[in-house]
Each structure stands twice: as C-alpha cells, then as structure tokens.
C-alpha cells in the first residue's frame, strides 16, 4: 500500500492525485447503467400496482427507487457522461410522468 497520506486539515498544501483511467469511468458507467435498469424495472412494477390496494404497500420502495434514480442522474453528471445523463433523465421523466398521471 502506498504510504503517502494526507491529513484532512492539510488538503490545501497537497496536490491531489487522480487516476486518469477510462477504465474507472467505464466501470462507474456500467454500474450506473445496471442500477438504472434494476430500479427502472422495479418502478415499472410498482407502477403496475397503481390504483390497486397494493400500491400503498410499496410506497416506501417507490420513493427509494425514485431517489436512487435521481442519484444516478447526479452521479452521471459528475464525469459529464452526457449520453448517460440524457438517457437516465429521459427515463426518469417518463417514469415521473407515469406516476403523476
């Protein structure tokens, strides 16, 4: 393990290192996309319960899934992954529209 460490109060004095790795971005993207698929899938199922007595039973899960989706959009913006952001935003808007109907 590398021994160069910085104390939290010393950030100003140190030039922070970074990995300039496409691989890391791709891995981040891959997780984001997979999570988006999972939660979109979940949300579509929760949507299918809308209007039934069972919808109330998944309110907590629905809110959590929507929050995760928003978080994924925020994450994709971190590294300016525009294509992913646009795709996620589009999917989220569709879901939101379906929920607000």
């Amino acid at each position: 393990m590398h021994c160069l460490t910085v104390c939290r109060s010393c950030f100003n004095d140190v030039e922070l290192k970074k990995t300039d790795s496409k691989e890391s971005i791709e891995k981040g993207n891959s997780i984001v996309k997979r999570l988006a698929d999972i939660y979109q899938n979940d949300l579509q199922y929760y949507l299918s319960l809308k209007g039934t007595p069972y919808a109330k039973g998944v309110e907590r899960e629905t809110n959590q899934a929507l929050a995760v989706f928003q978080e994924l959009i925020r994450l994709s913006k971190l590294k300016d992954q525009k294509a992913i952001t646009d795709d996620l935003q589009k999917r989220f808007d569709q879901l939101e529209a379906q929920y607000s109907r």
Binding site: F11, E15, L16, K18, T19, D20, S21, S24, I25, K27, G28, I31, V32, R34, L35, I38, Q64, V68, E71, L72, L75, L78, K79
Partner: peptide, 22 residues
Amino acid sequence: PYNIMMLRIAELYYRSTMSNAL
C-alpha cells in the same frame, strides 16, 4: 445482485478520476 449500496461504488469510481476527488 447490485443494489443501493453500489451507488457509492459507482461514485467512487468516478471520483477516483477527478482531481477534486473528495
């Protein structure tokens, strides 16, 4: 299976490539 805990993993992958990694 991936779940909510993977959000931080994805974020940290992104942050590792940034100079403002904190």
